[in-house]
């Protein structure tokens, strides 16, 4: 099945916008050359039918404008990704600053209090996470682009498409998602018990640092989550922007007896329990969960 061919045979409608309605983002993801080719092909097809040269010119202009609009869309996607990366970088810088302050704190207090050790540990964990997240995001972006490119080429070439996304790519999404989950988990976790009486009381500074660290941690979680959403990390798998609607626009109507025959039905046990639990978890117990929810959270 050659989607490109299908697009082209369906493209008498002449403008890219109309093409888009059929193959939609299929057009959106193919590269400039291919788009140009498509425009050309569709325009050439209409050439024969065009009434006047003016018609033709208008058509070409419209197609061009639509092409640029698509380019713009891709650009803004790219920017969103870059913004995500930038924010992660920021978080990293902030962590470095915090580390310096913890170090200072240790010097001024002279002793290695349990609290400082704790802070240091927390810091290094956060650092590792930010670093990992950044790496993942970069790889993901790269792989996504490669997969897209490969996909387009393969699609254009033949029906038996070989361009599989690497298994790593999805796994990486999962890992990123897990990371987000873990950060969230930490956010929701009960605060650590107060330091034992024998340990030196936390100083105001270390307290302040801890607060900032927590805030940063929350910030990273938020960023990751937001960013995750823009690159499609959610429990649902987002298909890339390739859409195949064109294949189904013109479904032949077959003579059949399907309307006269019923499919056997079975009753199944409900999903209320799962839905309720899911919703309760979404609320995170923050907002007036029902009684069962409270019990759950002990």
């Amino acid at each position: 099945m050659n989607v490109r061919e299908i697009l082209q045979t369906h493209s008498q409608s002449t403008t890219l916008r109309e093409l888009e309605a059929k193959g939609r983002s299929r057009v959106r993801v193919i590269n400039a050359n291919q788009i140009a080719e498509l425009i050309e092909a569709s325009v050439r097809r209409t050439l024969a039918q065009a009434e006047t040269p003016d018609d033709l010119r208008a058509l070409v202009e419209r197609s061009k404008a639509e092409f640029f609009e698509m380019q713009r869309q891709r650009d803004s996607e790219r920017k969103a990704r870059e913004e995500g990366l930038r924010q992660l970088e920021e978080a990293k810088d902030e962590l470095v600053a915090l580390a310096t302050e913890v170090e200072k704190l240790r010097e001024t207090e002279g002793t290695k209090t349990a609290r400082i050790g704790e802070l240091e540990h927390q810091l290094s964990c956060e650092k590792g996470r930010v670093e990992e997240a950044r790496r993942l995001v970069e790889m993901l972006t790269r792989e996504r682009d490669v997969a897209r490119q490969a996909e387009q080429e393969a699609r254009a070439a033949a029906s038996a498409v070989k361009a599989a996304p690497s298994p790593e790519s999805t796994e990486m999404l999962s890992r990123l998602a897990a990371e987000v989950a873990r950060l969230n988990e930490r956010m929701n976790a009960t605060p650590p018990p107060p330091a034992p009486a024998t340990a030196p009381a936390a100083t105001a500074e270390s307290q302040a640092l801890a607060t900032r660290l927590d805030a940063l941690s929350q910030g990273i979680a938020d960023r990751l989550e937001k960013f995750g959403r823009t690159i499609g990390v959610s429990s649902a798998v987002d298909a890339q922007e390739v859409k195949y609607d064109a294949l189904f626009n013109k479904q032949d109507s077959f003579e059949s007896n399907l309307n006269t025959l019923e499919v056997k039905e079975r009753q199944g046990s409900g999903i209320r329990g799962a839905l309720d639990r899911m919703k309760r978890m979404r609320l995170g117990g923050k907002e007036e969960p029902d009684a069962a929810g409270d019990a759950e959270k002990k």
Binding site: A239, Y244, F248
Partner: peptide, 22 residues
């Protein structure tokens, strides 16, 4: 994604998305 097969999920997924949308 399969660990032992070359499976193109994007194509498969896009296809069914298109089908259900239609």
């Amino acid at each position: 994604p399969s660990i032992d097969r070359d499976n193109n999920i994007i194509y498969h997924q896009g296809l069914f998305e298109g089908m259900l949308r239609s």
